[in-house]
Design a protein around this nucleic acid. Structure first.
Lengths: 207, 207, 207, 207
DNA sequence: CATGAATGAGGTTTCATTCAT
DNA sequence: TATGAATGAAACCTCATTCAT
C-alpha cells in the first residue's frame, strides 16, 4: 500500500496517509464538478481546509493530487466490488451473478460522475502514475473474473475469454454513467439492469 | 447546418465555413495529442497556419474551436455510418448487421484517439454547445436505429428497445477505444468483433 | 552575433534585438543594486517599462535576462578595449602600454559595480550560457594579448607567457573594483595605476 | 570574539558557540555548491542534522547563517596565514617571503571554491555584517603586512606602500581561484607561483 | 481582411519563519 | 531545548484576448 513516488516533506507516515486521504475525499466533488485542469490549487486548498503550503507539505504537485484522488476512489470501489463478489459466494453461481450485476449497476448509477471523471482525466497523469491507476482498474476487473471463474469451475458457466466478459461487465456499468444523458430517455436503471443481466447470463451459457 | 452562436467579424458565409472546416481539420491532431486545456491559442494558430488575429476573426474564442472541431468530426463520422448503413440496405438484415458491425468496429479502431478525446473534452464545452454535440451523437445512434428498424419491419429482428440496442452498438465501438490498453492483452479486434457480433445477433433475435 | 538559444515568440529579428538591448540597458542598474536573485521579474518589467507579458515575449525566462545583460555589457567593454588598443597602435609599444593601462584602469574605476556583478552572478547562469560569457571574457583578454604581441614582435617586449600577463592586466583592473573597499584607504587610483604600470613594464621587460 | 548581533534564544554561551561552529562547518559545502540564495533553510537544517526549529534557536535568520559561515572560514584562514607567517619568522626575510608565497598559493588552490564564494555572496549580507567580514579580511592582509614589515625593518625589503603590496599578495591568490577557468589553459600552479614570486621579490626590492 | 505585439490576471510552486507540542 | 507542521506572501511564468497598424 505504498504511496511512493509522491514527494512529501513530512516523515510521519501516519500523518501523510491521513492527510492524503483527507485530500482525496475533499477534492473529489470539486474535481468532478469543475474538471481537473479548471480547478486551481487555491480552490483545492480551500476545499481541503488547508493552506496551500500545508498541501504542498504532503504532496509534490497538482498532478499528485489527481493521482491520489483517483487511486483512493478506485481502491475504495475495488474493495466494494470485492466484498460484493465475496458475499455472493454463498449463492449458486447463476444467482450470484444476477445479484452482483444488480448491485454493481446500482453502484454505477450512484457514482456516475466519478466514473465519467475517470475516463476524462486519467490522461492528465504522467505515464507512470497512469500505470498505477491502470493496475487498480485491472484489480477491479479481476474481481469479476473471480466470480466468473468460480462459475466455470463448478460447471455452471461456460466462457471462452473470461477477462473479456469481466471487462464487458465493468464497461456496461460505466456505459450507464457515460451515456446517461442519452439512456435517460430510453430506459430506466431497472430495465437496463434486466436487459444486460439477461445478456450476460446468455454470454456465460447460464440461460 | 447553422454554425451560429459562434461569433465572427466576417460576413462572408462561404469564407467562414471554409476557414472553420480548415480549423477543425488542423486542430484535431493537436487537441488529441495535448488535450484541449493544454493547447494554447498560439499553437492552434500555428497548426492552422493562421495568425492569432485571423483565428479570432472567424471564431469567438478558444472554446468555439473545440466545438467546431467536435462538431466537424462527429458530422463526418455520422455521415460515414449513414453511408455504411445505407449501403448495407441491399443485404438481408442479418447480413447487413454483420457487415455494418464489422466495418464500424474497424472504423472505431482507426479513430481510437478521437473517440477518447470526445469522452474527455465534451465537458469543456458550455451547456449550450454540449447540447449541439449531443444532438450529433443522437444522429449517429439514429443511423443504427434505422438499420435495426428495417430488420424489425421485415420480421428478421425482434427488439424490445431499439434505441437501447443501437446505443449499445455505438458504445461497444467506443469501448474498444476507451479500454484498448486493457483489451489489447485480452483479444484482437477480430475476436472482439466476432464476440460482439454474436452478442448483437442474439440481442436482436437473429441467431 | 547570434542571440540564439534564447526563446522568443517574436519572429521580427530587428525588434528582438532592439528589445533585448533595451532590456540589457534597463536592467543593469537594478541588477547591480539588488543582485540577480533578489530582483523580481515584476521589478525588471517595471525598469524596462514593459509589461511582464511583453518581457516574456522576447525572453525565455529570468536567467536569459541575466545572460543578455552580461553579454551586452561585456561586448561593449570588449569593444571599448579593442578601440583603446587599436588607437594606441601609433605609439611605440612602451608608451602604448602605459597609455592603455592608464585608460583601462580609469575605465575599471568607472565600471566598478558592473565588474563586481560579473564575478558575483556569472555562476547563476546555466553552464551553456556561462560558456558564452567566458568566450566574451577571453575576447577581452585577447585584446590585451594583441597589444603585448605587437611589442614582442618589435623587440621592445620580452614575455614568456603572453596570455598570463594579459590576464593579469585584466584582473588588476578588476581588483580595483573588487577590493575598492580596502584599497580606498590605501591609495588613490593614480597611485594604483602608477604602481601597477611600473610592475607591468618590468614584467614585459621594458623597464 | 563576540558573536553578537545575532539573535538567539539560548543563554548558554558555550552551546551557542558550539552549535554555530557546527553550522558553519556543515553549511559550507552546501552554500559553495548551490549558492546562498538557492539554498533553503530546510536543506541547511538537514545538512546540519538539526531541526529547523533548533536552527532558529541559535540563529536569528538565514542571513546570520551566511555571516557565521563566512566569519568562521575567514577566521580559520587568517589563523592559517598567521601561523604560516610566524613559522617563517626564523628564515631570512627573502626566503621567508618565498616560502609564504608558495604555501599561500598552494592553499589558495585548495580552497578555490570557498574563495569564489566569498566574492560572490558577501553582498548578500547587511552592511553591518559586511563590515565584520571586511574586518576579518583586513586581518588577513595584516598578517602579510607583518611579514613585509619585518623585512623592511631588517633592511632586506624596501617598500613604499606596505598595505598595497600585502593586498596584492592576497589578491594574487584569489585570482588563481577566480580565473582558474581561464588560467587552467595558460599555466600550472607551479608556474603561476614562480611567476608571481619573482614579481613580488622585485616589488619589495629583494631581487 | 490580416497581423502579431502587448496586456495583466491568475496559474502553480517555494520558502523563511513561527509556535503549539 | 527540540521538533516539524503550518502559514501565506511572493516568486516565476503562461496565455486568452485585444487592437493599432
Amino acid at each position: 500500500m505504498k504511496k511512493t513516488a509522491i514527494r512529501t516533506y513530512s516523515r510521519n507516515d501516519k500523518l501523510i496517509s491521513e492527510r492524503r486521504d483527507h485530500i482525496a475525499q475533499s477534492v473529489a466533488p470539486l474535481f468532478v464538478k469543475k474538471g481537473y485542469e479548471r480547478t486551481s490549487i487555491r480552490e483545492i486548498a480551500e476545499a481541503c481546509d488547508m493552506s496551500m503550503g500545508a498541501l504542498y507539505y504532503y504532496v509534490g504537485g497538482k498532478e499528485d493530487i489527481l493521482q491520489i484522488m483517483l487511486d483512493y476512489d478506485l481502491t475504495l470501489y475495488t474493495k466494494f466490488v470485492k466484498e460484493l463478489v465475496d458475499s455472493s459466494g454463498s449463492l449458486p453461481p447463476r444467482e450470484g451473478l444476477i445479484r452482483v450485476l444488480e448491485q454493481y449497476f446500482k453502484a454505477s448509477d450512484a457514482s456516475q460522475d466519478l466514473t465519467l471523471f475517470f475516463y476524462q482525466e486519467t490522461k492528465s497523469l504522467q505515464p507512470s502514475a497512469r500505470e498505477i491507476i491502470k493496475g487498480r482498474e485491472r484489480s477491479l476487473v479481476a474481481e469479476f473474473e473471480k466470480l466468473l471463474a468460480r462459475g466455470c469451475k463448478s460447471g455452471d458457466f461456460k466462457i471462452d475469454n473470461i477477462t473479456l466478459v469481466a471487462n464487458q461487465i465493468v464497461v456496461t456499468g460505466h456505459m450507464w454513467a457515460l451515456r446517461r444523458w442519452l439512456l435517460r430517455h430510453v430506459c430506466s436503471l431497472e430495465e437496463y439492469t434486466r436487459h444486460n443481466t439477461e445478456y450476460f447470463l446468455t454470454a456465460v451459457g447460464a440461460n
